[in-house]
Computed example of a mutant assay.
Amino acid sequence: MKWAVPLFLVSLASATVYFQEEFDTNWESRWVNSNWKTDGSQAKFRRSAGDWYVDAEKDQGLQTTEDYRFYGISSKFPGFSNQGKPLVVQFTVKMERNVDCGGGYIKILPDGFDQSTFGGDTPYLIMFGPDICGSEKKTHLIVAYKGKNYLNTKRFRCEIDSFTHQYTAIFHPDNTYEFLIDDQEVSKGKLEEHWDILPKKEIKDPSAKKPEDWVDEPTLPDPEDKKPEGWDDIPELISDPSASKPEDWEDKDGEWKAPMIPNPDYKGEWRPKMIPNPGYKGPWTAPLIPNPDYVEEPNLHAFGTYGGVGIELWQVTSGMIFDNIIITDSVEEAKAFSEKNFAYRKAGEPDAKKVYDDAEEAKRPKPAEPEEHDFEGREDL
């Protein structure tokens, strides 16, 4: 059963669900299409479960409708900060068609944003989800800090098949994060190590100089290796022994000489063999020192005051379905939401897709069978 309204600021034990959306029949009362494109290049969403599904009603989500179009839609919720608390952002996206270029991400927006003009230039606090364009296939996990957007320094994969996939980003108050696809960990670590938000804690000492006696050549010529006798007597080119003077050659043409060809015995310039350098110390690098520009940020996990969620995209191939968005401070709440709304899809969609594909195949006209002829007794053959 779908929720009648999204849950705002619902406290369950110590958990708070700031936003929850399953796109019931009243979804349009909570979402606003923007007017950021006025040239006819922007299309609208519709509520749909797609061409195939596990549950015709429960699988209804927000679907893009037209190819080669921009999209912009958003929903607001009461502003909040996750300072000192976890923040979990989770949603599902289904790419029924073979996507050659299109975004499948959502944006978490700052409190007070303008829904009517929400578009590509609207500032956001988090941009999260898959993006595909040709051979470029990745999952964005971009965060904002002091008005500047920062891409994660690691490259995250995205799922490119036609099934529903769930994307989960978790930001912890100890300034670490986790990223999951379909409840499976893809990456985790420290925010300041996986985003270049803060200056590095340590830098190379700019005053350090490589010692004059530093040996950074891993090999050296073998001093005991000697050039073989006669090495330099072998010419690089020789006269072609198979060549002969043309019969029409005349003395007035000058003295005939056979053309020169590479000498198969020529070995090139002699060089002594290389041996390991006993004094090798490895590549020299300046020692690290504390960065005077580094200042610890205890609230790096809190990107601002969140006030809405938006879907702003360009799609060459339409048909993506967004669903089951939840923003909460509880990992357990997000897991429970996943068990309710995603687990059955993950289990049932392969079979549902096969049923659909088999039905589509049955609709296709079958090639005509060749006619049978009885040639027995015909004298003209």
Rank of each mutant, 00 (worst) to 15 (best):
R97N: 10
T317E: 01
T117Y: 04
A362D: 13
I126F: 09
S11D: 14
K58A: 14
D39I: 00
E379D: 14
K267C: 08
E376N: 01
W270K: 04
G112T: 07
Q20T: 12
E369Y: 07
Q60F: 00
A243F: 04
I327Y: 00
L381W: 11
E217W: 04
E369V: 14
M274H: 08
N277Q: 00
N152E: 01
D358Q: 12
H172S: 11
Y68H: 12
A169R: 15
A347F: 07
F322C: 07
P221L: 07
A15N: 11
Y177D: 01
P223R: 10
H373I: 13
E349P: 02
F128D: 08
S48E: 03
L180H: 14
I321Q: 11
A144T: 15
L62K: 05
E361K: 14
A334V: 02
K154E: 13
D248L: 09
D240F: 05
I108S: 00
D67T: 02
L313I: 00
T219M: 09
N299D: 15
K138W: 04
D293R: 08
S318P: 03
E361P: 00
P235R: 02
H140C: 07
Y266Q: 03
F171Q: 02
P218F: 01
Q90W: 01
K2L: 13
T64H: 00
K137R: 12
G72S: 14
Y145N: 10
L151F: 09
D196R: 13
P287L: 05
F322R: 05
G112V: 04
Q115H: 12
K200A: 15
G230V: 01
F375N: 07
Y68S: 11
P259M: 05
Y306A: 12
E376L: 00
T317K: 07
L87Q: 09
A15Q: 07
K273A: 01
S34H: 15
P264I: 08
P228I: 05
A286R: 06
V89T: 04
D222W: 09
E296W: 11
L12T: 14
P86A: 14
F322T: 06
E250I: 10
E369T: 13
W284I: 11
L381K: 09
R345V: 03
G119M: 06
C158T: 12
P276C: 01
K252V: 02
I73L: 10
P246W: 08
G134S: 11
T38S: 15
P365H: 09
W231Y: 03
G112N: 06
R97D: 04
I261V: 15
F77A: 00
N175V: 00
V143A: 04
N341T: 04
Y71R: 06
E212M: 11
K76F: 09
K201Y: 08
P130G: 02
G189N: 01
N152I: 04
D357S: 12
Q90R: 05
D357K: 14
S14F: 08
A352K: 03
P264W: 09
H301L: 09
H172K: 14
A15T: 11
L109P: 04
D213T: 05
K76P: 04
P370N: 08
A4C: 13
S116D: 11
Y53Q: 11
I311Q: 02
